[in-house]
């Protein structure tokens, strides 16, 4: 009975996860794949060649997306870590309100704020700029960073830091040698989520980037709604690559570190 259940789970997970991935891989190498053939009748690398041409703008989109996501991660860590720590380890007046403010962008649809921001940014000349796009990505990213890291800090506590202080470490040494290594697994997960939120943003980038700042999803989008499946597949595989790389790096934390995932349980 138990064995049968495990087999069913194993088969459904494997099929479920791989089925939507397989046709993309095949399509990216297909030249001619007429219905109802299960495999292409002619293979080619033309989609991959296309992806690497400047006119496809895939390279440009990739670099823009990467720069924006990295910048957003950097800023989220910079402002999110202190906030998360303050919330996790202190009781203060208005804590509930602070937590609520930092939670709202996660559960209230961002569409109102995004459309509203568009008007503000036009006036501030932030539309069509790298900074403008990054700022609008920050709105959902900071709350996620704070959410996950609050749980991580609360779980980590202060005992080890206090011990280090009594052993003669100065605040900077404590931060670099005790705190950061301790929260690193959690921070990696939080950073991954932050990176991926920015990496996957479409409509906000379209609106604020206004076509001047082209990100990878914007390059991919027309191909999905269009007819060139091969190009769509190749671009989408490129779009996935960094994400998979990050997952491999942190998958151990995802499955095990309950403090990290517990962050999502605090909402």
């Amino acid at each position: 009975m138990q064995k049968a259940v495990r087999w069913i789970a194993a088969i459904s997970i494997t099929l479920g996860v791989l089925l939507p991935v397989v046709p993309q891989i095949i399509w990216s190498f297909a030249h001619r794949w007429l219905f109802p053939n299960l495999l292409p009748t002619e293979w080619s690398l033309s989609s991959w060649e296309y992806v690497f041409t400047a006119s496809s703008r895939v390279g440009e989109g990739f670099i823009n997306s990467l720069l924006i996501a990295t910048f957003v991660c950097f800023l989220s860590i910079l402002v999110g870590l202190p906030a998360a720590r303050a919330i996790a380890l202190n009781d203060f007046k208005g804590k509930g309100l602070v937590e609520w403010i930092l939670m709202v962008p996660i559960i209230v649809p961002g569409i109102v704020s995004t459309l509203g921001i568009h008007q503000l940014f036009i006036r501030l000349h932030l539309t069509n700029t790298f900074i403008g796009v990054s700022l609008v990505h920050l709105i959902p990213c900071i709350p996620y960073m704070v959410l996950v890291m609050t749980s991580v800090f609360a779980n980590y506590g202060t005992e080890l830091e206090d011990t280090a202080r009594t052993l003669g470490a100065n605040p900077l040494q404590v931060l670099l040698r005790v705190t950061l290594p301790g929260i690193l697994p959690g921070l990696m997960v939080a950073t991954m989520f932050t990176f991926l939120i920015s990496w996957g943003q479409y409509i906000t980038s379209v609106l604020i980037g206004g076509g001047t700042i082209v990100t990878l999803p914007m390059v991919l989008f027309p191909f999905i709604s269009g007819v060139n499946y091969s190009n769509a597949a190749a671009i989408s595989l490129i779009f996935v690559a960094p994400a998979i790389l990050v997952l491999v790096l942190i998958s151990r934390q995802l499955g095990q570190d309950s403090a990290v995932m517990g962050g999502f349980g605090r909402l």
Partner: peptide, 15 residues
Amino acid sequence: IPIPHLVVATGIVLL
């Protein structure tokens, strides 16, 4: 988890 929704949409269409 890390795969963007747009990529998933592409895969689902092709499937």
